[in-house]
Simulated scan of single mutants.
Amino acid sequence: FVFDHHLPEEGAPLHSAVVNPHTCAPRSAPGENEAGRALCATGVLWAWAWKHSLLPRKRLAAMTDLVALATIADCMPLTPLNRALVRQGMDILSTTPRKGLARLFSRLGIARPGSALTEETLSMKVIPCINAAGRMDFADTAVNVLLGSPNVDESVEMLISLNRKRQSLSLKISKEAELVLSGGVNVILGESWPVGVLSGVASRICGATGAPVALAAPVNGGIRGTLRVPEGADAVGVLSALSSKLEAWGGHKYAAGFSVSRENWDFVRRDLQQALSSMKVEETSVTAIAMAPEEISIESWKEACTLGPFGNGNPPPMFFLARKGRERMLPLGKDGKHIQIDAGGIRLLAFHGENEREALAGADGWVYRPRIDCWRGEERLQYVVDYAVV
């Protein structure tokens, strides 16, 4: 069987060996099989195995750690089913992680087994290392870590090394792409770019600017690209309109990929640029509770976290701190990229805030979210800025 969770082309029948929850009910019946449609491919495989008792259910329950990693990695909406799977999987990751993951956690300086593991830690530290293998080299290295193979220590070191290379390369490509995008261009072909890192770069740029972006690179004589659009837009709909000129395409509402021949690239680039530059996206509203950081205790925040796991479809509670006029912008870290806002002894952390220093300094207030950090064995609350209110 082939297990997939992408939206199939409407009207195109799938092979009988393909298991895809989107084919279980017509799209005109959105309420049917909604939970299944929100699963990532790993979740589809797990649910199929559970439904047909392909393995003892006790053993399947112990494998929800893999489902949790995949669900968070693919930014799937945290519906009640996904939330339950991720919560159970994160409990396993926190208490009894697999041998290879335990080694990776240790090398990354993540909390020891038995300590709480957060969605943010997985998405910002662990998952990028696991994904780096397939992006920069061969996915076998990540599989070795997940399975706890005999050479697991060597594989863990390789993951960390590959992720550092990915970070460096992604930063270089981001700077090149942002320079072109600043001129009003939404579609870029990088002749020397490795295609494996483009999805992460495109996601970061789209998230930071709120603008749709398509990045592409040459692969095996053709061109492969990745498309990211902001909330309210439809990446699959954009590519569907260009399908006659594409060799392959697919994905999700906000993230999709495509392949095109060299001969058709100029036509695709023109039409894709026109579609993205004319895209009308409504600005999303942000809801926050007016509350000062010192009013939030670590105990109350832990209680709020029982509403999690947080992520796509289940955002964390956010809070608003109004400006009083005595706040100071201070450097954070050694590289000069980050800022901390000193608000009378309480400090808000603005990661990569140096690029937005003027907006942060002149803001009427800041929308922030608490997070639990572990320093020298002790838990403490940090306050991370998500928005400057101007």
Score class of each variant (00 low, 15 high):
P30Y: 09
P30L: 12
G31P: 06
G31D: 03
G31Y: 07
E32A: 15
N33I: 09
N33L: 12
E34Q: 07
E34Y: 05
E34D: 10
A35Q: 09
A35T: 03
A35Y: 02
A38S: 13
L39K: 04
L39P: 10
C40T: 02
A41S: 15
A41M: 11
T42Y: 04
T42D: 10
T42H: 04
T42G: 11
T42N: 13
T42W: 05
G43S: 13
G43D: 15
G43Y: 13
V44E: 06
V44S: 03
V44W: 01
V44G: 01
V44K: 04
V44P: 02
L45C: 15
A47D: 11
A47M: 15
W48A: 14
A49W: 14
A49R: 14
A49Y: 14
A49V: 13
W50D: 03
K51H: 12
K51A: 14
H52W: 15
L54V: 12
L55W: 12
L55N: 04
P56D: 10
P56I: 05
P56Q: 08
R57V: 08
K58L: 10
K58W: 10
R59M: 08
R59G: 00
R59D: 07
R59C: 04
R59F: 07
R59A: 06
L60F: 07
L60V: 01
L60G: 01
L60Q: 02
L60M: 09
A61Y: 03
A61W: 03
A62N: 05
A62M: 06
M63H: 13
M63N: 13
T64S: 08
T64K: 09
D65P: 11
D65G: 08
D65C: 09
D65V: 06
D65I: 04
L66F: 07
L66Q: 04
V67E: 09
V67R: 02
V67H: 08
A68V: 01
A68P: 01
A68C: 02
A68D: 01
L69A: 07
L69Q: 04
A70D: 10
T71D: 01
T71Q: 00
T71A: 00
I72M: 08
I72N: 02
I72K: 02
I72H: 03
I72S: 03
A73I: 00
A73C: 00
D74W: 01
D74I: 00
D74C: 01
C75N: 02
C75Q: 03
M76P: 10
M76D: 10
M76L: 10
P77T: 04
P77K: 02
P77Y: 05
P77A: 03
L78F: 06
L78H: 00
L78M: 10
